[in-house]
Write a protein that binds this DNA or RNA. Sequence first.
RNA 1: GCCGAGGUGGCAGAAUGGUUAAUGCGACGGACUGCAGAUCCGUUUCCUGGGGGUUCGAUUCCCUCCCUCGGCUCCA
Length: 480
Amino acid sequence: MRRVLIYDTMSREARVFAPIAPPRVGLYVCGLTPYAPAHVGHGRTFVVFDVVVRALRRWGYRVFYVQNVTNLDDKLIARAAEEDDDPLQLAERNFTAFRRSMTELGVTSVDYYPFATDYVPEILLQVRALVDRGYAYVADDGSVYFEVAKFPAYGRLSGQKLSQLQPGARVEVDARKRAPEDFVIWKAAVPGEPSWESPWGPGRPGWHIEDTAMTGRLLGARYDLHGAGADLIFPHHESEIALSESATGEAPMVNYWIHVAFVIFQGEKMSKSIGNVLDLQAAIDGVGPGALRFYYLNAHYRSPLDLLPDRSLAEAKEAYDRLAQPAHRIEQILARDGAERSGDPIPSEFAAASDELIDRLDDAMADDFNSREAITLLFGWTRRLGELLEGLDHLSGEGLTALAEPYRWAQEVLGLFGERAPADARDLERVVPVLLAARARARARGDYAEADRIREELGTAGIRLEDGTAGTRWSYAEPH
RNA sequence: GCCGAGGUGGCAGAAUGGUUAAUGCGACGGACUGCAGAUCCGUUUCCUGGGGGUUCGAUUCCCUCCCUCGGCUCCA
């Protein structure tokens, strides 16, 4: 099996990936708290992990990918109260919209999206275990807190020293705690809010324990990969480690921690609470899912990505369209005539180069998922195909398939170039050539007004024409 | 204050102890075109935050300073 390097936040170095029970791999990614629609920053994280999983699966790993949904928390309750809505239903609605965006973006790798509130029994078992083992204490109001002082390794993932933290730096200190670093794992019920019965009275789960209860159930006490945006390293992931390892007595909970850097927008992290957000679905609608994926993957996932308004996404679209053009054109011919179509063979050096390129693409991705390097290689292929482009229609199916291989690799691993022609494509493909012939006759007799009229009318139907030396080519203006 | 990640051309953004520091966008020039677009060819010499150190050689390794972003119990 291919040697894969993965940068691990805990050890702060790229390590050779060695799953606990190969070829099986367990991956848990902290998903959305759907109190508001997802933004472009969220999209980055989930596209990155989609690519991680696609790559691992290509290399033979059987990945079980769980992405949780925090469908009940303070923000959801607050937002629902503002809108006179039910928090669980609000979460459900935003999550449904999020799933639709993910599907459009080609994020197909997630096996299971567990909802936190479906795991209350597991959560209560874990709270009970922590109380019984002396790691947690019950406050007067029935809330249960994890006592961080009982877990000396707390702070290892983030490098934080408890003595140096500034309690209350951003969030008010809770008077019910024994120490400021303690965190709530079971919140006593507030009238009017959703709650569940427990040995400590009615209440609802704290944030961190939702994840450890779910991972314990779905992935076991120890598993391979845990990912999320980098903002969750502290305190969330630190606390997950403390909870899981204290409750189960097994360590380490996770072998590789993968954290994705932020999208920077207007000089700061794009964030719902800051308010500098670009709606994810709006971005997909604006430039298309392929261009947005390209934008994300055009930087290494551990580098901050500077999103310039009105510029970065348009730039990504330009670049992506150029990169994708030979891919779409080849696939269009193959879809029309089939892979068995007869024609000229491709120059021999291209077939060998195609195989070699795919090897290099896999190498790039196996080096801590260097998608930027992979894209650079793909641009080299697109550039190289430039000389064959005009004569593409004369090539054999076998030759075209060889040329398409690197793009198919990109479709499989990066999720690019997967745009589908519109549903009415078959009808268009019968009609358009007739109109093109009419336009060619008009041009031949110098009737450019008629020629332009046909071009414009096809344009309104979403068909783009390009006159070249080998005749007029047409394509869908906005592939989706 | 403490912890973490960074500072590379007009912009985005890779990589590397060693010939011209990728790739893309943009810009400029040219070919092609009825026009447009697309494509192709060429150009874009001056880019690795400051200062030390190690080295034959540093953008890369070490020290230090400055700056930016993030985290310090809301967050992808």
